[in-house]
Simulated assay, not measured.
Amino acid sequence: MESKSSKAMSHSDPEPVPGLGKSPALTRSVQTQLGQRLRQFYESLALGEQPVPDRFIEIINRLDQGQPEKKQS
């Protein structure tokens, strides 16, 4: 049985991601905000409200061709 002195996780503590074996570096609230913004961005792309950035097209084309991404220095 756990003692009452053990640290309870709060919403500001990073929560473990199943399958990764260790906690992410981002808090749950930051993960939620990022997820919401990404969903909004992708939705605007899907609806044609914004053009797909050239960088995304370049990465997708490389993935389709099986080429690794160039390292930038």
Rank of each mutant, 00 (worst) to 15 (best):
F41H: 03
S73I: 13
K70T: 05
L26N: 09
G35A: 01
K4S: 10
L26W: 10
S23W: 15
Q36N: 05
G35C: 03
G21N: 04
T32E: 11
Q50Y: 08
G35F: 04
R55M: 04
K71N: 04
S5P: 08
E15H: 15
P53Q: 03
S23V: 12
G19Q: 13
R37W: 14
R37E: 15
F56M: 14
Q33W: 15
K22Q: 08
A25Q: 08
L45C: 03
P53D: 04
M9F: 13
V30G: 09
Q67I: 09
E69W: 06
L26F: 08
Q72T: 02
S44L: 00
Q50P: 04
P68N: 02
I59A: 08
P24S: 04
M1I: 03
S73F: 13
G21S: 06
A46D: 05
R39W: 06
V17K: 03
E69A: 11
V30Q: 14
V17N: 03
L45R: 00
F41M: 03
K22T: 11
R37H: 14
E2L: 15
Q50V: 05
V17A: 07
M1K: 06
P18W: 09
S29V: 14
S5L: 10
S29D: 15
L34S: 06
M9Y: 11
G35R: 00
G66H: 00
Q40G: 03
I59W: 06
P18D: 11
Q40N: 12
G19A: 09
G66Y: 02
P24T: 04
I59R: 09
Q72K: 01
K7P: 01
S3F: 11
V52P: 01
T27F: 07
D54A: 14
G66S: 01
I59G: 06
D64F: 14
K70E: 08
D64V: 11
R39E: 09
R28I: 07
P18V: 08
I57L: 05
